[in-house]
């Protein structure tokens, strides 16, 4: 299986604090990979590095074989690498439908084409995706009026509308009603299996990530502590120590 994303010995420091220290991970095309670790271990920093939110100090990041560590967020997104945010980000003043319309892939969007209304296909896709995440009845509501959990789902739908190759999900189940989590896991599996979207997921909910991921990396103190299949990582004493020792 070819590597879709290769993070190679990436380091990132903020002032005196080393958030990521020579972190290397690989995500194969079509996989679901998990990223776990106690709070402050540098998971979101790694996401930010991959997605281009800040420059990295050392190392390289390759997506589909191309070096992306020097690119800005917009350029990376247009290549098909998207991320969601921990404190969901959506366009609060626009309706759910409009949030999806504006999330169509932008890499081919010519100047002249942007002066047209969203085409009927976009409308169909938007309705379908909203149905997929269960927000169809709210499609005309301003996104700002949705609950936190609903906004998370909307953000997921927006990401899918953009047809990403790789989707970085930052704690997708945080803040979601526990009864709805199974439905979310199911949707994520379907996104991966049916739509072919590769997933890299930061999760704190062990049950979720152990069920979902094929491969797991554990970060602690900015470094990769363990890497392997869920069962192996779960049983790894160093991982247990990291979680119990932290805090």
């Amino acid at each position: 299986m070819s590597a879709l994303l290769e993070v190679d010995a990436v380091s990132k420091r903020f002032g005196g604090v080393v958030a990521n220290n020579a972190v290397s991970i690989t995500v194969g095309a079509g996989m679901i990979v998990g990223l776990i670790g106690p709070n402050g271990s540098g998971k979101t920093t790694l996401f930010n590095s991959i997605a281009g939110a800040h420059p990295i100090d050392n190392g390289s990041i390759r997506f589909e074989g191309h070096e992306i560590s020097r690119l800005r967020t917009g350029a990376i997104a247009r290549r098909g690498l998207l991320r969601t945010f921990q404190q969901t980000r959506i366009y609060g003043g626009m309706s759910c439908l409009e949030n999806l319309y504006i999330s169509v892939p932008q890499s081919g969007m010519g100047w002249l084409e942007s002066l047209r209304r969203p085409p009927p296909e976009a409308h169909e896709d938007a309705e379908e995706l909203l149905g997929f995440v269960g927000l169809r009845s709210k499609r005309r509501l301003p996104a700002g009026e949705l609950s936190f959990g609903q906004q998370k789902l909307l953000e997921l739908a927006m990401a899918l509308m953009n047809r990403p190759r790789l989707l970085l999900l930052d704690e997708p189940t945080a803040g979601i009603n526990p009864t709805l989590i199974n439905g979310l896991i199911d949707r994520l599996r379907r996104i991966n299996a049916d739509l072919g979207v590769t997933l890299l997921v930061i999760e704190h909910n062990m049950r979720v990530i152990m069920n979902l991921a094929e491969h797991i990396y554990c970060l602690a103190h900015g470094e990769i502590l363990a890497s392997g299949e869920p069962d192996a990582v779960r049983a790894d004493s160093r991982v247990l120590d990291a979680y119990l020792g932290a805090g």
Binding site: A51, A53, R72, T73, G74, A75, A77, R78, L82, R83, F85, R89, I90, Y91, G92, G93, M94, E98, Y101, I102, S103, V104, P105, Q106, S107, M109, E113, S114, L115, R116, R117, P118, M158, N162
Partner: peptide
């Protein structure tokens, strides 16, 4: 149009708009 939607997206959350490739 897409242009108008883009303006609104920029207004509502420009960081998100950039992160989505606009």
């Amino acid at each position: 149009t897409q242009f108008g939607l883009a303006l609104h997206a920029i207004r509502d959350n420009e960081d998100k708009a950039e992160a989505m490739g606009l």
